[in-house]
Design a protein around this nucleic acid. Structure first.
Length: 904
RNA sequence: GCGCGAAUAGCUCAGCGGUAGAGCAUCUCGUUUACACCGAGGCGGUCGGGGGUUCGAAUCCCUCUUCGCGCACCA
């Protein structure tokens, strides 16, 4: 039953209490045995040790809105939550802590002990982001929470690996990969971020072999490079075969200055004669293109770096142990001292950085596992033909482009935290294989065992030390969370797969979305989701990305504490357009808070009126014109919102809710109907208005609930809108079908609404008039209305809304000259004020209005006298224009007459 | 270099072929019995520049400028 509503809304306790009640009642549980239509989302799993940022808030609020709306539409909803083990990120954090607290590295501890530490860390910090999502109000089915390193889930990873290996899609090979010298692991192409750098372009010269020692003239070849520190690994120089300048050098040898050696000059189409000197130093071990040239020309590969980016023994004793960037300077100095450095120029180029460690990656040859993607065509087609609907759909193009140029995926990582590769090597050969010296392994055999479970005679084997890329587990998320790998068919999978919507950021379209689609086809034979909604990226006020370093990322939990989760949700949703970035400003959350308070107080106002809650069908005949108007607006709102949901236009929905409530319901409807409560005399009108208020408020709470779940649930209970037979909570309540005015006389509705608009418009003009005479807030002014058509029966409402002490309806009122007047839809409104009559002032005022009116009329007349317009514009536009012409013409006539009446 | 966005009131953004809008900020009034997290009113814009299409362009097309984001190249 109804409970008293306090004066100001305090979200804190209300929100946490409702959340507990929903959880206790199992409201979020996805029911796989029910037979209602299903609706499902899998959460983009946040890093297990991560903390909530605004991007998460936006993303998860959208998912919660979708899930809650779907429930209220009567669907069986599963929103499946979970977390990601986030290989590099998590391992680095723990390594950092280990270094700081114990001064040890992971190798000091050994694999097993280190992993124990990581699990400890995970247990300690792993729940934080989940708790934060709960505080936000997310209606995930927490009983089904998954973690990418759960035993069941891990089994899927192994199964997938084995399947792909057996198909020949996964292979092991020595390839040029992106190596992170800080994390000491290979990375995929997607984990490398190109950043523009201010570098130097060094031009050096190598002597052509035999040109001096042989007694001939000294001959040099000039070579431009940005990386002189790799020259010790040069095994050739290359020129374009069409380049005449160097044609005679091809096939000859040049002298690498240190360690001194003769290296050949080769020809390769890849060389751009326009760049630098047109000569490229070829370092097959340290550049992707050089590697290719090296293969073609059968060149020696000399790796001069240690894995951590310092130089090794091949670089020579004076550089051994030196960092690559220091070596860049030192090698240049050495060249200079040898007289072989021609010039150094400033140069801007892009350098690939490790996404996680933020250091330049090093192209490096190493033995890694690679994947040729499965089901590429199916995935590309599914998006191209909208079987999977991207929103906004321009991402289709980005997706298609990536799918076309798709490269094999380096899936092995030299980390410990993650899914260890399910491959074992026979012990006697293991040393060789593990040292990464062996050639490609593309099939199992006597020496290699690939399987979900370890080989029977496990002590005869050694497991591959590497783990898999974190995304190699993420790409299975939509189905691996729903079933164990050895199950024939899980009921959850059957009911909820494919999922309905995926809500994620466009930044992981390749990392995650594309790969999930391919995995979905490969292991479930169909798409993993039907819609992908790409969210905006949340930036700060100045348009910068949120980052820890800048300190421009507000903690959502602080915002929730200050304004409430509902306010944060609503504020963010209201400014989150589809597909473009949003600039975050705390004021937007303040508005969310204010809106919650407005809703609260309007509900409180209803509760202060005596009268039982009554939300049955309306007695149309009893309704005031204002009630008809607001109910018609409510029906329109429900239709508009339903359409906006179809297109995922969340910001529009939030705006529609905001405008309806604040402007139409509170500012106009409630104010216009106050007379029914504050004035004696008409119990029938009072009852009718109260019923209208209940109807609007009840339905409005249902509409707002997905955006602001807590406050709506609270008000629902406090006012007592739950009826016999209704579910326990608002969140479980079905949206009503059909509008409240459905089936009523359309003409009567239109007439009532037109009259309401006339009154509201006139009130506006009356307020205007008051303000112009400096009486904006004066409650004691008198208005005299000379009504259009001879009568006006809404004087009481007019008086209240216009803020007047008295309103006299006087048909044919004969005004004194100079009496302030406004022309309105309901007639002429006079503002008689003793001592204020001033013919000149009024003439000036009316003259100004006449000018404006004439301008409008001129515009309309110009249009209508344009023959092209009259013959070509659509009928309804012409009709509207003619009405406008009539309106302005009448106004001009009237104003002219009134000014004339003022005398010359 | 290729592609994709964005540019509208001081700020954050809606509008995307038919009289330029909202919220915030600012200014003026107002403590009216839901709400000062409020109410009423005002100020403020040649819709980035230039072309074009159209009876009509913030809206469609072209072009330029600025900013952002992908992809590719980078000796």
């Amino acid at each position: 039953m109804a409970e008293e509503i306090s004066k100001g809304y305090q979200p804190g306790d209300v929100e946490t209490q409702w959340y507990s009640r929903w959880i206790d009642a199992g409201c979020f549980r996805g029911d796989e045995s029910a037979d209602k239509p299903s609706y499902s989302i899998v959460i983009p799993p946040p890093n297990v040790t991560g903390i909530l940022h605004l991007g998460h808030v936006l993303n998860n609020t959208i998912q919660d809105v979708l899930a809650r709306r779907a429930r209220m539409e009567g669907k069986d909803v599963l929103w499946l939550p979970g977390t990601d083990h986030a290989g590099i990120a998590t391992q680095s954090k723990v390594e950092q802590k280990l270094r700081k607290e114990e001064g040890k590295t992971r190798r000091d501890l050994g694999r097993e002990a280190f992993l124990e530490k990581v699990w400890e860390w995970k247990e300690e910090h792993g729940g934080i982001i989940i708790q934060q999502l709960k505080r936000l109000g997310c209606s995930c089915d927490w009983d089904r929470e998954r973690f990418t390193m759960d035993a069941d889930y891990s089994r899927w990873i192994s199964k997938v690996f084995v399947d792909l290996f057996n198909e020949g899609l996964i292979y092991r090979g020595k390839r040029m990969v992106n190596w992170c010298p800080k994390s000491l692991t290979a990375l995929s192409d997607e984990e490398v971020i190109m950043k523009p750098q201010k570098s130097k372009l060094y031009t050096m010269r190598y002597r052509v072999a035999g040109t001096k020692d042989g007694g001939g003239p000294d001959q040099w070849i000039e070579i431009a490079t940005t990386r002189p520190e790799t020259l010790m690994g040069d095994t050739a120089v290359a020129v374009n075969p069409k380049d005449k300048r160097y044609a005679d050098l091809v096939g000859k040898m040049v002298i690498r200055p240190f360690p001194e050696a003769e290296i050949p000059v080769v020809a390769d189409d890849h060389i751009d004669p326009e760049f630098g000197t047109g000569v490229l130093k070829v370092t097959p071990a340290h550049d992707k293109n050089d590697f290719a040239i090296g293969l073609k020309n059968n060149l020696e590969i000399i790796d001069v770096f240690h894995p951590d980016g310092t130089l090794n023994a091949f670089a020579g004793p004076e550089f051994e142990g030196m960092d690559r960037f220091e070596a860049r300077v030192k090698t240049a100095e050495k060249l200079e001292s040898m007289g072989q450095l021609v010039k150094v120029e400033d140069y801007e180029n892009s350098v690939g950085f490790s996404e996680r460690a933020d250091v330049p990656i090093e192209p490096r040859i190493s033995m890694q596992w690679f994947l040729k993607y499965p089901c590429v065509e199916e995935a590309a087609a599914a998006v191209a033909n909208d079987e999977i609907h991207f929103r906004p759909d321009r991402w289709k193009k980005t997706f298609a482009h990536w799918m076309e140029g798709i490269q094999d995926w380096c899936i092995s990582r030299q980390l410990w935290w993650g899914h260890q590769i399910p491959v074992w090597y026979r012990k006697e050969n293991a040393a060789d294989i593990q040292s990464r010296e062996s050639l490609d392994a593309t099939s199992a055999g006597d020496d290699i065992y690939v399987g979900i479970d370890p080989p029977g005679d496990a002590d005869q084997w050694i497991r591959d030390e590497d783990v898999l890329d974190t995304w190699f587990s993420s790409w299975l998320w939509p189905f691996a969370t729903m079933c164990k790998s050895d199950e024939e068919s899980s009921p959850t999978l059957k009911k909820f797969y494919p999922t309905t919507d995926l809500v994620t950021g466009p930044d992981i379209i390749f990392f995650w979305v594309a790969r999930m689609i391919m995995a979905g086809f490969r292991w479930q034979g169909e798409v993993p989701f039907k819609n992908v909604f790409f969210t905006s990226i949340v930036r700060d006020k100045k348009g910068r990305k949120m980052s820890k370093q800048l300190g421009n990322s507000p903690d959502p939990l602080d915002l929730i504490a200050e304004f409430g989760a509902d306010a944060l949700r609503f504020g963010l949703m209201r400014i989150a357009p589809m597909g473009t970035d949003i600039k975050f400003d705390e004021d937007q959350i303040v508005e969310g808070r204010n809106f919650a308070n407005k809703l609260w107080n309007a509900a409180r106002y209803r509760q202060m009126q005596e009268g039982a809650v009554e939300t049955g069908p309306v007695d149309f005949a009893s309704l005031s014109i204002y009630s008809i108007d607001i109910l018609a607006r409510l029906d329109q709102l429900e239709r508009d919102i339903a359409m906006a949901y179809e297109d995922y236009r969340f910001n529009e929905i939030a705006q529609l809710l905001y405008d309806f409530w604040w402007s139409h319901y509170c500012d106009w409807y409630l104010e216009s109907s106050k007379g029914d409560f504050f004035e004696e005399g008409n119990p029938a009108a009072r009852a009718s208005t109260l019923a209208t208020m209940d109807l609007v408020l009840k339905r409005f709470l249902l509409l707002v609930h997905p955006f602001m779940p807590h406050i709506t649930e609270e008000l629902w209970e406090k006012i007592g809108y739950r009826e016999a037979g209704d579910p326990e909570f608002l969140m479980q309540t079905r949206l009503p079908a059909g509008g409240v005015l459905e089936g009523q006389d359309k003409d009567a509705i239109a007439k009532a609404r037109a009259k309401t608009q006339a009154v509201y418009e006139s009130v506006g003009r009356a307020r205007n008039l008051k303000a112009e005479y400096g009486l904006g807030a004066n409650k004691n002014v008198k208005f005299i209305i000379d009504p259009e058509g001879g009568s006006f029966d809404q004087a009481a409402v007019f008086q209240r809304l216009a803020g007047a002490g008295e309103v006299i309806v006087s048909p044919g009122f004969k005004a004194e000259k100079g009496l302030p007047v406004a022309l309105t839809a309901i007639g002429k409104i006079y503002l008689p004020l003793e001592g204020f009559i001033d013919v000149e002032a009024e003439r000036a005022r009316l003259g100004k209005e006449l000018d404006k009116t004439q301008d409008e009329l001129k515009k309309v007349n110009a249009k209508l006298s344009n023959e092209n317009f009259v013959t070509r514009a659509p009928d309804e536009v012409i009709k509207e224009m003619k009405e406008r012409q009539k309106h302005w013409q009448q106004r001009v006539d009237e104003l002219t007459r009134m000014i004339g009446n003022l005398g010359v």
